[in-house]
Amino acid sequence: MTLEKLIFYVLAAVVLAAAVMVVTRRNPVHSALFLILAFFASSGIWLLAEAEFLAIVLVLVYVGAVMVLFLFVLMMLDIDIAVLRSGFIKMLPLGVVMAIAMAAELILIVGPGNFGLEKYAAPARHAADYSNTEELGSVLYTVYMYPFEIAAVILLVAIIAAIGLTMRRRTDTKFIDPSTQVVIKKGDDRIRMVSMDAEKG
C-alpha cells in the first residue's frame, strides 16, 4: 500500500466516523463540530485528488463562514433535541431500508464495476507548479461566462429574498437613533431632575 492510499483510507475513515457522529450526537453543537471535522477530512481527500482550489474553498467557505454562522444560530436558538427525535424510532425501519437501498445502488452504479480504473484510467499527474486555480479562472470567465452570470443573479435573488422575508418595521422595537444622539446638549437634555417626596418610615 502506497502512502497516498494510506492517507486516503485514513481520511475516508475520519469522514465516515464524523458523519455518523453528526447524526447520533445528542448535543447539536457537538454535531456541528463533527460536521466541521468531516469537512476538513473531505478537503484533505480533495487535496489528494489535486483539487487544491476546491479543498481550500471548502475550508474557507464552509468551515470558516457557513459553519461558524451555523454554530451561532445553534447557540442562539433553544433547540429541544427530544422533540426533534420524537419520530426517530417510528421512522427508523423505513430509514434503514432506504439507506441500504441507496448504499447498494451507489455501490452497483458508481462503484468500481462501472467506473473502476480499468474503465477510466487515472489522469496523469500534473507538475508541482501546476495551478488549478489559474485553470479554473481562465475558463470561468470565458467558457462558463453565461452560467457564471446566472449564478451571480441567483446570489442577488438570495439577498433580496432573505431581506424581503425577514426585514420588517416594528413599531415596538427599541433602538438608538444616532442623529438625535449627537445633537444632544449638555444639561437639561442629559439629566432630568425629578423632585420627589422622601419616603417615610
Binding site: 435573488v157 438570495a158 433580496i160 429574498a161
Partner: peptide, 13 residues
C-alpha cells in the same frame, strides 16, 4: 440547473 434554481428560489420567497 441554474435556471431552475433561479426560478425556484424566487418562488419559495
Amino acid at each position: 440547473y441554474l435556471g431552475l434554481e433561479l426560478l425556484a428560489l424566487c418562488l419559495y420567497a
